[in-house]
Amino acid sequence: MTSEIDLDLQRLRIAIPADHDATKPLPLLVKANPENPNCWATGSGDQIFTTMEHAQNSMTLQSAEYKEVNAKRYDLSRFVKATVVPEDDNMVTLEGGDYFTDVQEMLERLGDDVVIDGEPNLPAWCFTTTRHGFDLDIEGVIESYMSDNHHEDAFNELVGFQKLSSFWVAWCAKQTVSSFYIDYSRIIVIDQERYERELAEAKAWLEASPHG
């Protein structure tokens, strides 16, 4: 191992000795020293720690394997905590997939695409969604504009705001536009037997791998 190492000196920080004259530069010698180290760098060189354990732990946290397991833990924890709800008039979806009008449409559209051993491998459950209608706060928009572009009391000088506000409330009530967003806290069960099996498997995996 060579004692010469490249350093990103803009990121390096040290504890200055108490007796050093802070008005003068502090001379340093930084080199790789496997025989008598007082700090450890991660294998990538991105971070430096005062103990080998901390360096190793940082490398573990940055590994692809750890991130994969942690992502699985996050997904399964969310699944286990989700509340089972009956289907309503909101759209349904699978994570990372399309949105469907209802469960029946989802199963019909997925049936030709998700096939294993010649048979449809359809989901045992799906996420429901939350509906967002048209609810733009016109008062907040105008207040923000006035605050950014006018003096402190300018909003109170506006003429006819109440008339505009009444018109806006009535106009918003006529709007039918809706957008749907996945709701990870609520799921709809499609196949009860398979859902219960997947739930039990998820709980068992989380019990065996409890720590992030």
Results as ranks from 00 to 15, higher is better:
Met1Pro: 11
Leu7Thr: 00
Asp8Tyr: 01
Gln10Gly: 12
Gln10Thr: 14
Arg11Trp: 07
Arg13Ile: 10
Ile14Trp: 05
Ala15Trp: 14
Ile16Phe: 07
Asp21Phe: 08
Lys31Val: 12
Ala32Asp: 14
Glu35Pro: 02
Asn36Lys: 13
Asn36Asp: 12
Trp40Gly: 06
Ala41Arg: 04
Gly43Phe: 11
Ile48Met: 13
Thr51Asp: 04
Met52His: 12
Ser58Lys: 13
Ser63Thr: 08
Ala64Gly: 08
Lys67Pro: 07
Val69Met: 15
Tyr74Leu: 11
Tyr74Ala: 10
Leu76Pro: 03
Arg78Cys: 13
Arg78Val: 12
Val80Trp: 00
Val92Gln: 04
Thr93Met: 11
Leu94Gly: 06
Glu95Pro: 15
Gly97Trp: 02
Phe100Asp: 03
Glu105His: 05
Met106Gly: 05
Leu107Thr: 09
Glu108Ser: 05
Glu108Gln: 02
Leu110Pro: 03
Asp112Asn: 06
Asp112Leu: 04
Val115Ser: 08
Glu119Asn: 14
Ala124Asp: 14
Cys126Met: 08
Arg131Ala: 15
Arg131Pro: 01
Gly133Asp: 00
Gly133Tyr: 02
Leu136His: 04
Ile138Gln: 03
Gly140His: 02
Val141Cys: 14
Met146Gln: 15
Asn149Asp: 07
Glu152Met: 02
Glu157Val: 07
Leu158Val: 08
Val159Ala: 09
Val159Phe: 09
Gly160Tyr: 03
Gly160Pro: 05
Gln162Gly: 08
Trp171Met: 09
Cys172Asp: 05
Lys174Arg: 11
Gln175Asp: 02
Tyr181His: 15
Ile182Gly: 07
Tyr184Ile: 04
Tyr184Trp: 06
Ser185Val: 01
Ile188Val: 08
Ile188Asn: 04
Tyr195Met: 01
Glu198Phe: 10
Leu206His: 04
Ala208Asn: 11
